[in-house]
Amino acid sequence: MEKPKSPKSAKLSLASSPAAKKPARAQAGPARKPAARRPRIPYSKDEIREIFRRFSIQRPEPKGELEHVNPFTLVVAVALSAQATDAGVNKATRALFAVADTPEKMLALGEDRVRDMIKTIGLYRNKAKNVIALSQKLVDDFSGEVPRTEAELVTLPGVGRKTANVVMSMAFGVPTLAVDTHVFRIGNRLRIAPGKTPDEVEEAFLRIIPEDYLFHAHHWLILHGRYCCKARKPECERCVIADICKSKEKTTDAPAPLVELPAQIV
């Protein structure tokens, strides 16, 4: 009769089995997250090119609607436009820029005076502080000149990536794409550049926009979202890309006539 194995011998037998030689799953290191898949868009390359071709016919020379006289006043205007309308910012900055169109003049004006002149804009107290702080930064670190790179622009108080992209495009002619609320909505509503964050939408648009249309794409998308593909109710009957659009909210398949509109609409 075979004697039962002692607990010690049983452990030795188990350790020598083939299964015991395999490393435990926990010893294999932390599991890697699978790479996020890019969402597929329901547009062909030809359809995307046609979308931007029509935008280019509708608005051959689109321009931003924020009033400014030089790169400095543009930086200030874009920084002030956060959570405010362009029209509201323009109303406040006309008088401000008439007396302070350089960082040095803005510093001489002082925070209290700047605050009084922009008090019709939302968050005006904090924005006044940022205007003075960014003016001081420009004087101290950039000899009073607005820098031309994103890395330098975002070091200015109140200036984020979106503001930097707008300034680089409008002031220095760099083909960038700033994602504001309109561009973000267009990317997701049309399913042409979907993303959960502005950075994701920007990356998606930059992958698909034809290079020869990139320079004006930012303004085309903003103006399309502001005046046609509106947040509450898109006006599909006026849309020049209605027959191409793959939005689930679309109400018509008929494109509007390709009539040239004013480059700047106030």
Rank of each mutant, 00 (worst) to 15 (best):
S6I: 05
P7I: 03
S9T: 09
A10K: 14
K11V: 05
A19P: 01
K21S: 14
P23W: 11
A24I: 01
R25D: 07
A28G: 14
P30C: 11
P30N: 14
P30W: 10
A35D: 03
A35C: 00
R37P: 00
R38K: 02
K45C: 05
E47W: 04
E50K: 11
R54T: 10
R54L: 12
P62Q: 06
G64D: 02
L66R: 07
E67G: 03
H68W: 11
N70K: 00
A79D: 01
Q83S: 11
A84N: 12
A87N: 10
G88H: 05
R94V: 13
L96I: 11
D101W: 01
P103K: 08
A108P: 03
E111Q: 15
D116L: 07
T120D: 06
N130P: 08
V131F: 04
V139L: 08
D140I: 01
D141I: 01
G144S: 00
V146W: 01
A151N: 09
L156C: 01
G160F: 02
R161K: 12
S169G: 04
A171F: 01
L177I: 08
V179D: 04
V179R: 02
R185Q: 13
R189I: 09
L190I: 14
R191S: 10
P194H: 05
V201F: 12
E203I: 09
A204V: 04
F205S: 10
L206Q: 08
D212K: 14
A217S: 14
L223P: 03
R226F: 07
Y227S: 15
C228D: 13
P234I: 11
P234H: 15
D243L: 07
I244E: 06
K246G: 04
E249V: 12
T251I: 13
A254F: 05
A254Q: 10
A256S: 00
V259C: 00
V266D: 12
